[in-house]
Structures are given as structure tokens and as C-alpha cells.
């Protein structure tokens, strides 16, 4: 049976982007987020947040939370640092009241922004093999402080 609209729990949807050294699967990410929430807020707090990973494609994702717990959810996402020993950080793109809003307003905008040709002045380009899930493997920074490090790294890659 449907819940009465007035009794429905109010939710918010948070669009985020995952930056990681290695590919992170959906299961690993949701596990890590729930771990982080448990260690920050305990069972009671996590229950109140009512979090759920709704979608995740290897790079972008949407997480659900209670309307008045967006700040707590943000803090929990900020505390995710490692998945299987690889460094990870979650960047919240924005919060919306509907899933469609979160997708259209933040994730699609972010993808459009990235696909545009980069400003030539930035000088930030990376060479690397891209996996299916867009995660850059063997990333090399070609504008380093110390030029020797590039030589060393690219040599390692050839091996």
C-alpha cells in the first residue's frame, strides 16, 4: 500500500563524482560509504540518515539521504579515503530534491563541461590508458615540478 503523501519521508539526492587511483566497483563503494557512516554516526545516526546508493557507473553516482541530514551525509562522504588500499576521494557535485534533477542539473552538466575542449592555458593533461569505466590507469602527470619523475615513470610503463 502506498504511504500517505504527508507521511512520506522527505529525501534529498546527492550527485557525486568519484576520483580514484584504481577502478572502484559499486559494491566496494557502497560498502565503504556505509562503513564511513557507521564509524562517524553509529547505528542510530546511520539509521536516521536513511542512505542508499542509487546509481553508480564507475565515475558518477547518486546517493539518497534524509532531507535534514544532507550535511551529515556530506561529512560521511568526505571521510571516504581508501578503497582496497587505493586512494579515493568523493566530490559532491550538488544536492537535489529529485533523481532527475540531480542527474540533469549536475551529472550531465559535469559531463558536458569535461567533454568541451580544455582551455589551452591549463597545461594539465595526463597521458594514460583509459579503462571502460573512465578511470585513468597508469596516469602520468606531464607538468611535474621535477621533470625527472616523468622520465622515470614512463620508463616503468615501457617495462
Amino acid at each position: 500500500m502506498k504511504t500517505l503523501p504527508v507521511l512520506r519521508e522527505k529525501k534529498r539526492y546527492m550527485a557525486f563524482k568519484v576520483m580514484s587511483e584504481q577502478a572502484v566497483t559499486r559494491y566496494e563503494l557502497s560498502d565503504e560509504i556505509s562503513n564511513s557512516m557507521h564509524s562517524l554516526f553509529g547505528d542510530k545516526g546511520t539509521g536516521e540518515i536513511n542512505a542508499g546508493l542509487l546509481s553508480y557507473d564507475g565515475r558518477y553516482g547518486i546517493i539518497r539521504c534524509a532531507r535534514d541530514k544532507t550535511i551529515d551525509t556530506r561529512a560521511a562522504l568526505a571521510c571516504v579515503t581508501r578503497v582496497r588500499g587505493a586512494r579515493v576521494s568523493i566530490f559532491v557535485l550538488g544536492i537535489s530534491g529529485t533523481i532527475r534533477g540531480a542527474t540533469e542539473k549536475f551529472i550531465q552538466q559535469c559531463i558536458i563541461k569535461e567533454s568541451e575542449p580544455e582551455n589551452k592555458n591549463t597545461g594539465i593533461r595526463t597521458i594514460g590508458r583509459r579503462e571502460n569505466d573512465h578511470t585513468v590507469k597508469n596516469e602520468i602527470d606531464i607538468s611535474p615540478d621535477n621533470p625527472l619523475s616523468v622520465k622515470k615513470k614512463s620508463f616503468e610503463n615501457e617495462m
Partner: peptide, 11 residues
């Protein structure tokens, strides 16, 4: 990977 946005820092 340790960098956090100002909003996250406030949270």
C-alpha cells in the same frame, strides 16, 4: 585525493 571542497570542510 586529500583535497575536500569548502562545503565538505564546513560539513
Amino acid at each position: 585525493y586529500d583535497l575536500r571542497s569548502p562545503r565538505d570542510m564546513a560539513a
